[in-house]
């Protein structure tokens, strides 16, 4: 086997694909949540804080109730509260969503660090009841795809359902139409007798729930009931990039998250051959390329419209 083939076989293994799915899941869940607020015309950069809250309260619930379901329940409850809180400030009181998003991120970091130390002490916590990985015997017979999809955390499979539901909701129900209208043409929606604000409340609520799920996946699914301060590690911002790239389409947002996961997995494995500083820039390079693509696509459309 030549050196090149060796590199290829380490970089593109089943493990790479498994990691792609694992790493993409929290980003994808948050990105689908972000798509909701994006459709409603709210630029939500507070997703990172929402993820962190979900991660912490997931572990806290799991610790207090000694069951992963209790953790999931508490994370969801907090997601609802954070979503409502966000809507209260942004929709009801019309604060600048950018500032509130920033505030939410710092708020979440401070609050979770403070509570973590109050409850678990300086050492943080780990080994609380976590959500089990699913073993599907029928999958193990399929080569490559089998091991890639098998033995993943429950959330990985759940995310596929969420993507489908979100797509149906946004594009196939009247609620979805109103949701999109509330961002694009709020006045028209108002004329039709539907409050754009109500749709924005719903969008914020859904975003809070989905981001909390993303956090719970991080601490209870990907890790076994572990919380570390600032463990969201900017996943919320990556999710935001996915939202913009996908033009808030849930399916495309999932694909964008998969791409990030894929390049993260490749980057880790390439480190055996290339400097880590270089592989570390991959997600950011991808973001820049994505953004250039988005802008170019928009301009092309404008030109087409002008010609027509």
């Amino acid at each position: 086997m030549s050196e090149f083939e060796k590199i290829l076989s380490t970089v593109f293994s089943v493990g790479t694909l498994q990691q792609m799915l694992r790493s993409a899941t929290p980003v994808a869940l948050a990105a689908i949540g972000g798509s909701m607020t994006e459709h409603a015309g709210i630029m939500n950069i507070g997703m990172d804080g929402m993820i962190l809250m979900g991660a912490f309260f997931g572990v806290l619930g799991s610790f207090l109730g000694q069951s992963a379901l209790a953790g999931l329940g508490l994370a969801l409850l907090i997601g609802v509260l954070v979503g409502l809180f966000f809507a209260l400030l942004v929709v009801r009181y019309k604060s600048d969503e950018f500032i509130i998003g920033c505030a939410l991120n710092t708020f979440a970091l401070g609050l979770t660090s403070y509570l973590s130390r109050s409850v678990f002490g300086n050492n943080g916590t780990k080994g609380n009841p976590a959500l089990p990985a699913l073993h599907l015997p029928f999958l193990s017979k399929i080569p490559i795809l089998g091991p890639m999809l098998n033995d993943q955390s429950l959330f990985v499979y759940l995310t596929w359902i969420v993507v489908l539901l979100a797509w149906l909701f946004v594009y196939k129900t009247p609620y979805g139409l109103w949701l999109r209208a509330s961002g694009e043409k709020p006045d028209t929606l108002r004329t039709a007798g539907i409050s754009p604000k109500r749709m924005q409340w719903i969008a914020s609520l859904l975003c809070g729930i989905l981001c909390a799920l993303a956090g719970a996946h991080l601490s209870l699914g990907q890790l076994s009931g572990t919380f570390a301060e600032n463990m969201s590690n900017s996943r919320g911002y990556i999710a935001f990039a996915c939202v913009i790239f996908a033009a808030a389409h849930p399916g495309k947002a999932y694909l964008a998250a998969l791409m990030f996961g894929f390049f993260e997995a490749i980057g880790l494995r390439l480190q055996s051959y290339v400097s880590a500083d270089l592989t570390n820039t991959i997600p950011y390079l991808i973001t820049i390329i994505m953004m250039v693509y988005v802008v170019a696509r928009k301009q092309q459309r404008k030109k087409k419209l002008a010609r027509a």
């Binding site: 380490t10 498994q18 990691q19 694992r22 990907q222 570390a228 463990m231 590690n233 480190q271």
Partner: peptide
Amino acid sequence: VVTNYANSYDDPAKGKECALALADQ
């Protein structure tokens, strides 16, 4: 000896992925 870097000191999920990538090797 195989090594990699998490590029973070506080992201256990990333640390886990790093270790799994090494275990794959």
